[in-house]
Design a protein around this nucleic acid. Structure first.
Lengths: 178, 178
DNA sequence: TGTGAAACGGACTGAGCCGTCCGGTTACGA
DNA sequence: TCGTAACCGGACGGCTCAGTCCGTTTCACA
């Protein structure tokens, strides 16, 4: 690959990250190309469709999250491990407006499986330790991540549970609907 | 106003409600017109722009929410009043995919002020009664409503606080950032 | 039932966007 | 230094969508 091609590829990826984060997935390819300082033909040579570009950007973000999840597993305190990852992931969603839409649009990406696996471990461990409520499965817990981009403390408080004393409120909990 | 005009206006509003709720604000005016069984010229005669149509639909939804808020105030138990409204509003956001985007796009609507006023009363009353955490102001509390469309119980648990024993977790709470 | 005003709806315009293509340019090996 | 292969970017086509316009239809009232 020629040096100029590589340089432009980097610029395009960076510009796309910023554009999608700020404006969501509806930002045009022209806009991305303009910010990268290239013609939009150049963008389409590297990424045959806009979705391919989106997937590349999303992939990079997922890689970052995978590292965070693994860091959480390395933490010995189950709650700290879980909540640290949860908080960081939530902040990621807050910073990047396109993440949710992109996930809907791109479908399954290769990194997803691995990330999901690590994230599930985090949840299961915290639940076993009795510090995380047990009436939601990992899938459901992580549906709350985007929601937590605003006030993570509130939602983490809602998620926290103790062994024995299950919750602050003693009444039977209503079924958690979807 | 002629009878056919009135009938079509109703049809258009209903169709728009359904379309936007299901598909978000990006549904085309043609699609709305098709579902209403009219030409899209007819839609644009009543609503000069797509945003005007969106505002009309949003306005109806806000009216519905205002009634819910007033019902909450009529409830004598402060927590039941607040949480009932919170839950109903959250469900509204869950059912209607366009609500958030529409609010961003339409800006301030006349109903908003009144709704906000009632909602604030609900929050202040619950906070005074010591059943709702005090480290968030009403504005911030209601930023959590759309987030609660999925698992309202979790978030309500996170919001609940008792007088004296402020929270389950005794450590000083981290600053709630935005 | 006849007539005029109001409403209807489809054709049309223009803008924006995705994706393609090709003539000109640039980097790199010999 | 030079030839060539790779790369660049703007022009272009096709599409969708918001908003306009006008010939035709429908309603309401006398």
């Amino acid at each position: 690959m020629r040096a100029d091609a590589l340089r432009n590829l980097d610029r395009v990826l960076d510009a796309a990250s910023e554009c999608f984060a700020e404006g969501g997935v509806d930002v045009s390819v022209d806009e991305v190309a303009r910010r990268a300082g290239v013609g939009h033909g150049t963008v389409f040579r590297r990424f045959p469709t806009k979705d391919a570009l989106l997937a590349a950007v999303l992939g990079k973000e997922l890689d970052r999250m995978l590292l965070l999840a693994q860091a959480g597993l390395a933490e010995e305190d189950a709650w700290k491990g879980f909540s640290g990852f949860f908080r960081a992931a939530a902040e990621g969603y807050g910073r990047n407006r396109a993440l949710l839409e992109a996930k809907e649009r791109c479908g399954a990406l290769p990194q997803m499986a691995l990330l999901q696996q690590s994230a599930h471990k985090l949840v299961r461990r915290a639940q076993k330790a009795g510090v995380l409520r047990r009436d939601l499965d990992p899938e459901q817990i992580f549906e709350l991540v985007p929601a937590a981009s605003r006030y993570p403390d509130v939602i983490l408080d809602g998620l926290r549970g103790q062994a024995g004393v299950d919750r602050l409120r003693p009444q039977p909990r209503a079924a958690v609907g979807r």
